Amino acid sequence: MNIFIPLIAGILMGYILRRKGRKVNVDAAVSATLLLLIFFMGVEAGKVKIDALWLLSSSVVFAALTIIGSLGIALIVGGRR
């Protein structure tokens, strides 16, 4: 819920600055914030202990089954020409 307060404050500030005709360049601030967000997401992801081999094998099996299922449905619905 606390994410909505800065969001609404930013919307109101943008609306007020738009009405006054001022143009504020926030590109650098947005880029820096996104880089920090990505960095901290990486830090949090690095803390998680996973079994990488099991995850890789299950992902490959899931991807293969998804492709096979999609091709099967396409052949059933569209037929083979």
Rank of each mutant, 00 (worst) to 15 (best):
M1L: 14
M1A: 14
M1H: 09
N2W: 08
I5W: 03
I5S: 09
I5F: 05
I5T: 13
P6R: 03
P6A: 08
P6L: 09
I8P: 00
A9W: 08
A9F: 10
G10A: 12
G10C: 07
G10N: 08
I11D: 02
I11C: 10
L12K: 14
L12C: 12
M13V: 15
M13Y: 11
G14F: 03
G14P: 01
Y15A: 15
I16H: 07
L17N: 13
L17D: 05
L17C: 13
R18M: 13
K20A: 13
K20P: 01
G21H: 11
G21D: 08
R22S: 10
R22A: 09
K23Y: 09
K23P: 00
V24G: 03
N25S: 12
N25G: 05
V26N: 09
A28V: 10
A29M: 14
A29W: 08
A29F: 14
A29E: 12
V30L: 14
S31W: 06
A32T: 11
T33P: 02
L34N: 11
L34G: 04
L35F: 11
L35D: 07
I38L: 15
I38F: 14
F39C: 10
M41G: 02
G42V: 02
G42K: 02
G42Q: 04
G42L: 10
V43M: 06
V43D: 01
E44G: 00
E44I: 01
E44K: 03
E44C: 00
G46E: 00
K47G: 08
V48P: 00
K49P: 01
I50T: 14
I50S: 12
L53F: 07
L53K: 13
W54E: 14
W54C: 00
L55A: 12
L55R: 04
L55W: 06
S57R: 09
S57M: 11
S58H: 06
S59E: 07
S59Q: 07
S59W: 05
V60N: 04
V60R: 07
F62N: 05
A63D: 01
L65T: 04
L65G: 06
T66D: 05
T66I: 02
I67L: 10
I67Y: 09
I67A: 13
I68V: 15
I68L: 05
S70W: 06
L71S: 03
G72W: 06
G72E: 04
I73H: 05
I73G: 00
A74R: 15
L75K: 15
L75M: 13
L75A: 14
I76L: 10
I76H: 10
I76M: 10
V77D: 03
V77P: 02
G79C: 03
R81D: 06
